[in-house]
Design a protein around this nucleic acid. Structure first.
Lengths: 186, 186
DNA sequence: GTCTATACGAAGATAGAC
DNA sequence: GTCTATCTTCGTATAGAC
């Protein structure tokens, strides 16, 4: 794609990193250009609608990765506890051990919130449903499974915010470590 | 302050609302001007360093409100459960039942993160410490009290993010409702 | 204190040469 | 596909009149 040195996916990966770090409105074309090594014109060549296109590409990429890794871990072989451990392991990877923000968080603010709200709600909802299914498998009643699944997503998002604000990922790591047991306890 | 129609505090209140809704980089002087009814020149008259000054004023105001109301509830008369209930009640008020974002969240992203990181970390830390003190009063060991206090802050922040992304504050309300009991249970 | 006017750069976006 | 140049709008900031 860029003179055959970076694939489209690699370019979008870098774009994604910028959005996760600076949010939608804090991300400028200048920064995207620098991060990808592509000039403005090249960016518009690949993403005709500019910033919004790039944000959509980032959303899609991160969505695929999430399905293929995080959700796949939830649906993997093994008992509920093993699946939840595989899940939290992938979550930690997904957020670089708490050092990277969640796109769903930073895109839910301001202008981007309006652009992506539908996607964001669907993603949160899908994750809650997937965790809930695992918890039902473990024998929890549907309502309680859903309640705990919501709490899990809340804890992940909250731990990311707290870790970012504190500039210390210790809370994020602890919350993830304790999560499988907490979710399954009687 | 603006021809004696709004006090400085009222002006900062409105500025604060804009920042909470749009984040730091998503907030423009045009929006601040509109929200306050003050022309650009007037804004610079009261806040010589422009946007950064206004953000600092918003941070200060929200910090005072937090100390005078939320932390005051934690330190109020009564047993731990009553104090935690007073606390969650103020928290709900503080975030307009989950409809308003936390400044600590939206200011921890991008450019603003660098500007305010010190303040943000101190605020989160202070809140954790205050909740922890109440939990110690209830008989919990220091380490466990701190662990639960961190979890409380994580849950609040996470519930705000999830509610914002879902455009539905049900999760926020439930998390707050369950919080006093969860924090104190054996 | 507030207004009008304006400077100035940044940001998003496009055109056309190569 | 990438570059240079350009355009427009927006955002921040200032000056000076009232």
């Amino acid at each position: 794609m860029p003179a055959a040195v970076l694939s489209r996916e690699e370019v979008v990966q870098r774009i994604l990193l910028v959005f996760r770090e600076h949010g939608y409105e804090g991300t400028s074309l200048a920064r995207l250009s620098q991060a990808t090594g592509l000039g403005r014109s090249s960016l518009y060549h690949y993403f005709p609608n500019g910033k919004e296109d790039m944000a959509n590409a980032a959303m899609s990429l991160v969505g695929e990765w999430f399905v293929d890794n995080v959700l796949a871990a939830l649906n993997s072989e093994g008992n509920p506890k093993q699946r939840l451990q595989a899940f939290t392991s992938k979550v930690s990877e997904f957020y670089h051990a708490g050092h990277l923000s969640c796109l769903t968080d930073v895109f839910s603010v301001g202008e981007a919130g309006k652009l992506f709200q539908h996607h964001l709600a669907k993603r949160i909802g899908g994750l809650v449903a997937s965790i809930g299914t695992v918890l039902e498998t473990s024998g929890l009643a549907k309502a309680e499974a859903r309640r705990r699944a919501e709490n899990a997503v809340v804890s992940i998002q909250g731990a990311l915010v707290v870790s970012r604000a504190m500039q210390d990922n210790a809370v994020f790591l602890r919350v993830l470590r304790e999560m499988p047991v907490t979710l399954l306890q009687a």
